[in-house]
Design a protein around this nucleic acid. Structure first.
Lengths: 193, 193, 193, 193
DNA sequence: TATGAATGAGGCTTCATTCAT
DNA sequence: TATGAATGAAGCCTCATTCAT
């Protein structure tokens, strides 16, 4: 009931924020999209900032659970990287807002999260932890090189983010999913033992 | 002199925009930082949007010229990647705003550049072109793998951007430059033939 | 209720615009006069320009309906001119802003209406059409001379406007209505067959 | 020298004010038109308001002297009205700004002239006096009807102003001068004994 | 006289948030 | 819970005017 509606507001906000940016998305716009009144939004979220924070957690948890499922499978690191890359591109295809939200809102509005511990980085920690698990496992199995985690994290997620950005800029000739193999192969090469 | 002042406004704006984002940086804030009056800013730039656009060109041309100098040297691709990574981290050390600006403003406020051709992608083209040259040369010399340029671009720049982001989030234990070797090695592995 | 408030804003704006001109009447002034907040004005009219346009239509339709009622009566042209002149001076007495608005805003700020078809002339067309009807009828009945409509229009409305202007300048010794007979007689002589 | 330059600033201002309105004409625009610096304008006129006031006097004196020359001739009132109407339309043809200034600036910015005696009406008095002379002479010669001067003034000037406005609105099919005969005839009929 | 960079008040407009219903 | 009119602070931008040169 209430929780359900809260989630649907979150989805709508995520979509609007990621498409148009945080500052270009007003509460009235969200209300209109939800066919609710402006005031009623505030019965579910105490502020626009809070909405943005919840959206980050929401998006991160979707990415995290996607990755968790793959981590839980019995696959080689190469396969995991490949599967996650594909899953990532599926998300881009179906719900690009989940990814774009990080690029459009999280990156550029750090001040929103200033009062959070870690300056808000922790909001995404569920996801980051899962990436760490993938890599640590790979290292343990000697499939991936041992190196500073954040370097590995950057290649992995930075590359995917880069492609997402280029897709958003409409400079890619084909749909993102088409590049999945090449991308995952490249990431794997970067990380392999 | 007028050109000098224009450039110093540009630097200040770049710094503020990159630190706090476009929308959280007001013209009064820029004016205060510059110890100028609000109105006087407008004698140098016709609008806040225009200021942001000029800042992109400015930042892109610094990155491009850094990379161009390296491209012009007689080095292997591996060395070039390494040199650029080091140069990149030097910039992060000295003028992090130049890099962060891309992350915090350019990536995230596409609508600012909507009226630009290519939706503003061209603003960074000077830099993108130089990356392309590095990779194409490497491919020609059989040092780098031939693959879709945008994939290579994403690994290269996405990885560097990822590290910049993590640095901005204060999750790195050491200064970015410390990771330069590991990062450039990783990028090279991703791209090598 | 919303429509009612909209109209009362329109009346207040009309009054202020006509008294002080468009540019000397600020939104805060209108808000103060209405005892509303500045922002709330914008819940009723999307811009100050739009307010001015709506005011023109509003004023023109009042003038038009006044004249239409007279046109609909079975009167000689001379009587019609006389009745309209009297009605006009009644309006000046009770709501001078309706007339003065044309003088002080419409005539003088054409650029406000540049994006309107006919450069905004159409905004007043309801009224102009009614004047045309009065004159055409008079010509048909051989009571008025046949001549270019715009010349007739100028004598008719220009004369009334002239008196309104002089009244606004406080150079008339008596109230405008006092001159109604003399004015209507003069207009009639100008137009009669 | 100085007086000459002052007059040329006045001409330029008159042109710009009448074309674009008082508030849309900035001092920098006037300076650019004059190929002078902004500051230098202030060596000739102490304020923009003062410039507007001087422009009114300037324009009124041109109209007054035009009318004076006609008044000084030995003509019937009908001929005088006709000559002035023609002269008026000549002015509209050659320097419409002189007339339009009254419509665009004087009418709509009364507050500019609030500190003037008569609320600024006196600024145009040279011209008004000349109109009075034309009419008084006509009355004395029994060619024109004796009636309240301001009524006569309104028909005379209001009609001409009406035509000017319609011309500015581009609703006239032909050039204003073409209507001169019809207009002067109509004015004469309105005023004749 | 002449320049034009600089000032700063003030205008229009937006929008997160509140609150009476 | 739900509504949406109302508030008011704050942002962008303009421009008359000044002043150091």
């Amino acid at each position: 009931m209430k929780e359900r509606k809260k989630e649907s507001i979150l989805m709508a906000s995520l979509r609007l924020f990621s498409r148009n940016g945080f500052h270009n998305t007003t509460i009235p716009i969200i209300a209109k999209e939800m066919k609710m009144s402006v005031g009623n939004i505030y019965n579910y979220f105490p502020s626009k900032n809070n909405l943005a924070k919840c959206a980050i957690k929401f998006a991160a948890s979707i990415l995290a659970s996607t990755l968790r499922k793959i981590n839980d499978k019995d696959l080689t690191s190469k396969e995991k990287i490949h599967e996650f890359t594909k899953a990532y591109y599926d998300i881009i295809e179906i719900s690009p807002e989940i990814i774009e939200y990080f690029l459009r809102v999280y990156l550029s509005n750090r001040s929103l999260f200033d009062d959070e511990k870690d300056g808000g980085f922790a909001l995404a920690s569920e996801f980051v932890d899962e990436v760490k698990r993938l890599i640590d496992d790979g290292v343990k199995k000697r499939e991936l090189r041992e190196q500073n985690f954040f370097v590995s994290f950057s290649v992995f997620i930075g590359t995917l983010g880069g492609m997402t950005f280029l897709n958003g800029e409409n400079v890619l000739e084909k749909k993102p999913i088409h590049y999945a193999n090449e991308v995952s192969e490249t990431i794997y090469r970067a990380l392999k033992a």
